[in-house]
Amino acid sequence: MEHRDDIGSKLGMWIFIFTEILLFGGLFLVYAIMRSSYSTEFHQAAHHLNAFIGAINTVVLLVSSATVAMSISAVQKGNKKLAVILLLITLLCAAIFMVNKYFEWGHKIHIGLYPGSALMLTLSHGQVMFFSLYYFMTGLHMFHLVVGGIILTIAIIKVQNGSINKDRYVLLENGGLYWHLVDLIWIYLFPLLYLIT
């Protein structure tokens, strides 16, 4: 006997999202305390971040979130082709985000700004904390982006072969919720890391 409960699955996904929010919550707590101790150093260090790349990534993520939400509407309306296209756009956005991040991190590592580097040890304590937080937070965020990408890839395959369809789409909804979570965290990361100059 198969037991199916879409609301139950969604509830489960939401609870999982709560745990993710609190996982990042621990990091934001560290951020709040470090920032209250080293506010001027945080301002100085934030100058090293490229707010333009950050802004582009914000736009990219917002667009990807919208396309995921639209793909759910498309599946609900039975428009399989549109749903797949929208999800592919989402994955494309994720790829753009990753490439941007690759250049951003790559540049910093190239000039020697990474935890434990010789240059880092010459900086003030507050700046060290800022960059440590920067790497840890964006790194963990990127990990979630990759996981979200994998989930959506599975969703695309399932939309294609029809196991996600008009009557049965909770998996896509849950994948979408996870993707929005990635977006949600970035909404806070962007101003807190890039815009505090």
Partner: peptide
């Protein structure tokens, strides 16, 4: 592994945190 230093006073971190 990476010496991020959140809890390491020699890097500006805070063990009480």
């Amino acid at each position: 592994w990476l010496r991020i230093g959140f809890f390491d006073p020699s890097l500006g971190g805070d063990p009480v945190l």
